[in-house]
Design a protein around this nucleic acid. Structure first.
Lengths: 116, 116
DNA sequence: CCTATAATTCGCCATATAACGAATTGTATG
DNA sequence: CATACAATTCGTTATATGGCGAATTATAGG
């Protein structure tokens, strides 16, 4: 129950859900997620920390950047099921669609921003 | 996104999740849920109101009692998927197991309490 | 009718949470 | 080694949330 509630609480904030949805397609570094959500760096960092503690995402350090991605198939059942819940529920969601396009743009412009 | 977040927020409280799990097997009236959660009537009522607004549960009035149950298959996708997420995640959860037994006891003693 | 029980609504309070800015750490690069 | 940028941590603040008790509404039964 403890772990389940950690997962549930992690998904009870819209910003964090949008992060999870954004990471469904590809990994993104923190500065890209900041640009995506249009929130202060400290705020986004806190969200990422919470999602990481809930074992929903994991980070990979590369130079100055930290890339976050969804956890792999070795993750706990309630987490994998939660991710699938988000994906299936937002498949036809207008906000999620716009977000998806915006993420694509941000990734496309990577040469100007987060790259080594 | 709006509806999804309503569902997610509804499941971000442990008491409400335990209600959903308890209603997975059978419908229960409010006074049974009060006994189950050991919370004040006003608190439980508020939780039920929130779950109802999120379209996760629905109520059926019978005499003095109002029986709540999980929504049927005609409910929104994100709600059905959420219910399935809870069920599968808590299948082997110790707390959920004890809760399940307790609900059985409460239902078994229905003749002394909630019946018409 | 009057009382008891079920359930909800309302107002209050304590705590949790999300947001920010400032300060800090770490890494690449001039 | 100084600077710039990525990211985090910390302290603060405003708001959201969960809990309760008191008051209210509705229904069954003496």
């Amino acid at each position: 129950m403890r772990n389940f509630m950690a997962t549930a609480k992690a998904l009870s904030d819209e910003g964090r859900v949008r992060i999870v949805a954004a990471l469904a397609g590809q990994e993104l570094c923190v500065c890209e997620l900041i640009e995506f959500l249009e929130l202060a760096p400290s705020t986004v960092s806190k969200h990422l920390s919470l999602l990481k503690q809930a074992r929903i995402i994991e980070g990979r350090k590369s130079g100055r950047w930290i890339y976050y991605r969804l956890v792999g198939d070795d993750a706990p059942v309630e987490v994998l099921a939660a991710i699938e819940w988000v994906r299936s529920s937002l498949r036809d969601d207008p906000v999620a669609r716009r977000d998806s396009e915006r993420v694509s743009e941000i990734v496309a412009g990577r040469a100007d921003a987060c790259s080594d």
